[in-house]
């Protein structure tokens, strides 16, 4: 494998392999920043991977009161799933259990698409006949009476089929601490990219996976080629100076958003340099046969 070097950080000549997904975006607001975030954090909890969670979800951007439909603090949230039915199910359950329940919350659509997913149109039945439908300005809202007043929820939101899931960066460092510094720098940069989310804890994965495993029924198992403690016993990708690897997984509203996010991440990590952060950047793929979208690192250099 050829290697490029940017500011002392080695960039592997490889690519991230990603998949087409279904996605939607919504805006959740609250009476203040704390409670807007609380509703969102609860809703996007346990939404790291479609493998076990049904969907992948996270905050896209935080919105100031002037940017939200009701003039209160809020967040744009993106949710990704592998099918329209699963996305509808996850959206409805998470809104019903996590946002409807959160004090003072309200929920609005924030994506236009040919296919519409139900939000208030499904949750309205909680109103038990006291729900109120309101249509104005080309939008349809449901108002559901609850114990602190009303839950305002737009009837539907749009879905895109052009979303991409699984963009990624592998950050290889000499120590765990340096890997974490590099990962945090990448996450900080990617958070600023609109239309891209990082669904894993704090945006970082330490248990990258390969497809399948030796045990029957395992869809995914540890990425042994990048596990430093297995460096001597498997066909390892790690050189002698690498002792920790962290992965950033990126889902984007479009392929361009994923590319922009990876580019921002690479720029942040290379700017940090190998002494403070990662010594090498790589990416995960399956040989290019499974995913439709390939992001070559050499095309995304700063």
């Amino acid at each position: 494998m050829q290697h490029l070097t940017v500011n002392g950080v080695t960039i592997d000549d490889t690519f991230a392999e990603a998949f087409g997904m279904r996605a939607t975006a919504i805006i959740i607001t609250g009476p203040n920043r704390k409670w807007a975030r609380q509703a969102v954090v609860t809703m996007t909890g346990f939404a790291t991977s479609v493998i076990g969670c049904g969907c992948e979800a996270a905050i896209d951007v935080e919105l100031s009161p002037s940017q939200t439909p009701d003039g209160r603090p809020g967040c744009r949230v993106m949710i990704f799933a592998v099918s329209t039915d699963e996305l509808q199910k996850q959206l409805q359950n998470r809104l019903g259990q996590c946002v409807l329940t959160s004090p003072g919350s309200a929920c609005f659509a924030d994506l236009k698409g040919e296919t519409e997913l139900k939000m208030g149109a499904a949750l309205r039945y909680f109103g038990d006949g006291w729900q109120v439908s309101k249509k104005f300005g080309g939008r349809h809202y449901w108002r559901v009476p609850v114990m602190d007043g009303e839950f305002l929820c737009e009837a539907t939101t749009g879905m895109t089929k052009a979303a991409v899931g699984g963009g990624n960066l592998l950050l290889l460092a000499q120590t765990s601490a340096k890997a974490l510094v590099a990962a945090e720098a990448a996450v900080g940069a990617i958070e600023k990219v609109p239309g891209a989310i990082m669904p894993f804890p704090g945006g970082v994965v330490r248990s990258g996976s390969k497809v399948g495993g030796k045990y029957k029924g395992m869809m995914a198992s540890t990425n042994d080629a990048f596990a430093p403690t297995l460096r001597g016993v498997v066909k390892s990708e790690l050189g002698p100076d690498i002792n920790a690897v962290l992965e950033i997984v990126i889902d984007g509203e479009t392929s361009d958003a994923v590319a922009a996010a990876m580019k921002a991440g690479i720029a942040a990590v290379t700017e940090l340099g190998p002494e403070k952060g990662a010594a090498r950047i790589s990416a995960g793929n399956y040989g290019g046969k499974l995913g439709k979208f390939h992001y070559h690192l050499k095309d995304l250099l700063p």
């Binding site: 009701d70 003039g71 003072g104 309200a106 007043g149």
Partner: peptide
Amino acid sequence: PDSAFAAVIDRY
């Protein structure tokens, strides 16, 4: 009670 609907229609 506080009303998000009131805020939305006011802004509209």
